[in-house]
Deep mutational scan, measured.
Amino acid sequence: VTVHVDGVEYDFDNPEEALKFAKKVAEDKNGTYEVHGNQIRVT
C-alpha cells in the first residue's frame, strides 16, 4: 500500500498501518485522505 503525501510516497506492507498513518497525517495538516485501491492520497 502506498500513501502519497505532498508528492512523497510512503510504502507500507500492512494496509492497517498505512491507513493509520494516512489518518494521522491528514489530521495533523487538517486535510483529508482518499483511498483508491492500494493507493491512499492525503490532501
Rank of each mutant, 00 (worst) to 15 (best):
V1C: 14
V1A: 10
V1D: 02
V1K: 04
V1L: 07
V1W: 15
V1T: 10
T2N: 04
T2R: 10
T2V: 12
T2W: 06
T2L: 05
V3F: 02
V3Y: 02
H4F: 14
H4C: 15
H4L: 14
V5G: 01
V5L: 08
V5P: 02
V5F: 09
D6H: 07
D6R: 05
D6F: 09
G7Q: 05
G7R: 04
G7H: 05
G7T: 04
G7A: 05
V8M: 12
V8N: 08
V8A: 09
V8D: 07
V8T: 09
V8E: 11
V8Y: 10
E9R: 14
E9K: 14
E9G: 10
E9V: 15
Y10Q: 03
D11R: 15
D11W: 15
D11N: 15
D11K: 15
D11M: 15
D11L: 15
F12M: 02
F12G: 01
F12V: 01
F12Q: 00
F12E: 00
D13E: 11
D13V: 10
D13S: 11
D13R: 09
D13K: 11
D13Y: 07
N14K: 07
N14V: 06
N14T: 13
N14F: 06
N14W: 05
P15C: 14
P15T: 11
P15L: 15
P15R: 13
P15S: 11
P15I: 15
P15N: 08
E16W: 11
E16D: 12
E16Q: 10
E16K: 08
E16N: 08
E16F: 09
E16I: 10
E16V: 10
E17W: 05
E17V: 06
E17A: 10
E17K: 06
E17P: 03
E17R: 05
A18H: 00
A18W: 02
A18I: 00
A18F: 01
A18K: 01
L19H: 05
L19W: 07
K20V: 10
K20M: 13
K20R: 13
K20N: 12
F21H: 02
F21Q: 00
F21V: 01
F21C: 04
F21S: 00
A22L: 03
A22E: 00
A22T: 03
K23N: 05
K23L: 06
K23D: 04
K23E: 07
K23P: 00
K24N: 07
K24G: 07
V25R: 07
V25M: 14
V25I: 13
V25F: 08
V25S: 08
V25H: 07
A26E: 02
A26G: 03
E27L: 13
E27Q: 13
E27I: 11
E27H: 13
E27C: 15
E27A: 14
D28Y: 12
D28Q: 13
D28S: 13
D28H: 10
D28L: 13
D28N: 09
D28E: 14
D28F: 12
K29D: 05
K29C: 14
K29F: 15
K29Y: 15
N30L: 07
N30D: 08
N30F: 08
N30R: 10
N30T: 04
G31T: 07
G31M: 12
T32H: 12
T32Y: 13
Y33D: 01
Y33G: 01
Y33L: 11
Y33T: 04
E34M: 09
E34A: 09
V35R: 08
V35A: 05
V35Y: 08
H36S: 12
H36I: 14
H36V: 14
G37W: 04
G37A: 06
G37L: 06
G37C: 12
G37I: 04
G37H: 05
G37S: 05
G37T: 04
N38C: 12
N38L: 07
N38Y: 05
N38Q: 07
N38R: 08
N38G: 06
N38H: 07
N38V: 05
N38F: 06
Q39W: 11
Q39N: 11
I40D: 01
I40F: 04
I40P: 00
I40V: 05
I40H: 01
I40Q: 01
I40E: 01
R41W: 15
R41C: 14
R41Q: 11
R41K: 13
R41I: 15
V42P: 02
V42A: 02
V42C: 04
V42E: 02
V42F: 05
T43I: 15
T43N: 12
T43P: 04
T43L: 15
T43R: 12
T43V: 15
T43F: 15
